[in-house]
Computed example of a mutant assay.
Amino acid sequence: MSSTSSTSSTPLFTAHSALTPHGWDEDWADVFAPYAAEGLLPGRVIRVDRGQCDVVTAHGVLRADTAFVTPHDPLRVVCTGDWVAVEPDGNPRYVRTYLPRRTAFVRSTSSKRSEGQILAANVDHAIVAVSLAAELDLARIERFLALAWESGAQPLVVLTKADLVPDLVTLGHLVQDVETTAPGVPVLSVSAEQGEGLDVLAAVVAGGTAVLLGQSGAGKSTLANALLGEDVMDVQAIRDVDGKGRHTTTTRNLLVMPGGGVLIDTPGLRGVGLWDASSGVGQVFAEIEELGRDCRFHDCAHESEPGCAVLAAIDTGELPERRLESYRKLMRENQRIVAKTDARVRAEIRKEWKRRGAIGKAAMEAKRGRVR
């Protein structure tokens, strides 16, 4: 990021320096320069709602229409966190374009067409909120982390409602379980009710943009209010039966935190489908990818091949079998998603099916030969 000192600030950056708390910097000013020449205003999208969006500018918050930037590609629509070029006036006022995104958090929709859905843009930290009031679902955490890594943001797992854990020993074991599941990812336990751990979390995300993710009932709205220092987000009690709650956040909102940085809160996500996230999956399961480099065959599927270093690690107890099963599941799901839009991948899948079929057939024939 460029320096923002008075000796190096560009006139465009200085003219809109009121946007600095929302993430405006000299790099964004440089990218925006051609649009400034057209008389357009820079601003950041703080909320999107049915073809309209709220954009914060140096002149205040403007309501603008997104009709000019609503293509057929759902990944190219305006979303919360985008930096945009907006008309200074007009009725209606229009967003003319959004600036190239530094990062983008994308998941697949629940539709049968398996389209991608962009949840937030230009995010530095992806906070995965997980409630300690319910049993940990490590596989779901791995899924969230795969999308977070793929987005280009730095993931962070926050275990909420730590005050409901009976003792510190149990809490330590829970944190350790998640750390094993999330190599290279900071794991923090917090209690928004008691204020524990919030100062550490606020310091981690200060100075950047953080998106808050998690299931309904994970305590995201309570956590957001604690970070913001006021009751901005509605909070509802969760059910005692299953630890779940109703969706209290219905839109994605971008809010400035008092200690620095901005926070994008999101609705609770029931479904978290992968969207072309092979790199993200690889980072979540970094130890499996590392072991795989020592397999005898470079295309080893880690199933029954001879000389498989991953299976050997399972046998010795170095690698938990649950991790390998989760890795296989996410890789298969991601491959199916990519195959729907990539003919080359579809051909590779068919080729792999044939290869495995031939191996199975040869094994059966060898077995019959031994029986005879």
Results as ranks from 00 to 15, higher is better:
254 L>N: 05
329 K>R: 10
340 K>N: 11
236 Q>K: 15
298 H>N: 13
315 D>A: 12
328 R>Q: 09
237 A>G: 08
261 G>S: 07
330 L>K: 00
338 V>I: 15
324 L>N: 07
266 T>P: 03
306 P>D: 09
275 W>M: 00
243 G>A: 03
229 G>T: 06
313 A>Q: 00
294 D>G: 02
234 D>F: 14
235 V>N: 04
254 L>C: 02
309 A>E: 12
337 I>C: 04
308 C>Q: 13
239 R>F: 09
235 V>L: 01
267 P>N: 11
216 S>H: 07
236 Q>P: 02
272 V>Q: 02
251 T>V: 14
221 S>C: 15
252 R>Y: 00
223 L>C: 06
250 T>L: 03
340 K>M: 15
248 T>S: 05
230 E>L: 06
257 M>N: 09
253 N>W: 00
217 G>D: 00
270 R>C: 08
333 E>Q: 10
289 E>I: 13
226 A>R: 09
233 M>T: 12
319 L>F: 13
237 A>K: 12
296 R>D: 07
250 T>K: 14
267 P>Q: 09
333 E>V: 11
291 L>I: 14
256 V>L: 00
295 C>Q: 12
282 G>D: 12
312 A>C: 07
216 S>C: 05
340 K>D: 11
297 F>D: 07
320 P>Y: 07
323 R>S: 07
310 V>L: 04
227 L>Y: 12
270 R>Q: 10
321 E>D: 13
258 P>Q: 05
265 D>C: 04
274 L>N: 01
274 L>H: 01
333 E>N: 10
334 N>H: 07
244 K>G: 01
289 E>V: 15
218 A>G: 01
217 G>L: 04
232 V>H: 05
309 A>M: 04
222 T>A: 15
244 K>V: 03
290 E>H: 08
236 Q>Y: 13
279 S>E: 13
248 T>D: 02
229 G>Y: 09
301 A>G: 01
301 A>S: 11
321 E>G: 10
273 G>T: 04
320 P>N: 05
216 S>L: 12
329 K>P: 03
255 L>K: 11
300 C>I: 04
251 T>K: 01
290 E>V: 10
301 A>H: 03
223 L>H: 02
280 G>W: 00
317 G>W: 13
258 P>L: 01
319 L>A: 08
277 A>Q: 02
290 E>I: 10
246 R>L: 04
242 D>P: 06
324 L>W: 02
236 Q>H: 15
235 V>Q: 02
247 H>I: 07
253 N>M: 09
297 F>L: 13
336 R>C: 08
250 T>S: 10
234 D>E: 11
234 D>R: 13
246 R>K: 08
251 T>H: 06
226 A>D: 13
306 P>M: 04
251 T>F: 00
308 C>I: 08
324 L>M: 06
283 Q>A: 15
290 E>G: 05
315 D>H: 11
230 E>R: 02
223 L>I: 07
310 V>P: 03
261 G>C: 08
272 V>E: 07
217 G>K: 10
288 I>Y: 08
230 E>Q: 15
338 V>M: 02
229 G>R: 08
239 R>W: 09
332 R>M: 09
300 C>W: 03
286 A>W: 00
261 G>H: 04
256 V>W: 00
260 G>H: 04
304 S>R: 11
324 L>T: 13
257 M>V: 06
299 D>W: 00
224 A>D: 01
325 E>Y: 01
296 R>G: 12
307 G>M: 05
322 R>M: 08
225 N>L: 14
283 Q>C: 11
